[in-house]
């Protein structure tokens, strides 16, 4: 049970201070989540904090590799425009 940050992360630092499990750390080329520490915020918050503040669609995946913030979900940009 852990989330994952992938390469579309823009290193904005928003998630790191929010993590109740101190699972997020600065790394090159982008931030990472320590899968052993991540609790998906269970017991601390209703929503996983990193994925709740992350501004980049697709940057954080759940354990099945599915983005918590799929394309268009944060910016409201229509999918066909995103692709173009």
């Amino acid at each position: 049970m852990a989330l994952e940050i992938i390469e579309s992360c823009v290193n904005c630092w928003a998630c790191e201070p929010l993590c109740p499990s101190k699972a997020i750390f600065e790394a090159k080329p982008h931030f990472l989540i320590d899968a052993n520490k991540c609790t998906e915020c269970a017991g601390d918050f209703e929503d996983p904090q990193c994925a709740t503040i992350c501004p980049i669609e697709g940057a954080i995946l759940n354990e099945n590799g599915i983005p918590l913030n799929p394309p268009g979900s944060l910016t409201g940009i229509p999918l066909q425009k995103l692709a173009a």
Binding site: C12, A14, P55, I56
Partner: peptide, 14 residues
């Protein structure tokens, strides 16, 4: 200060 706590429609957080 890299982080932000809102999204503006004129901003690309990249």
């Amino acid at each position: 200060a890299p982080a932000c706590n809102i999204q503006c429609n004129y901003c690309n957080r990249k």
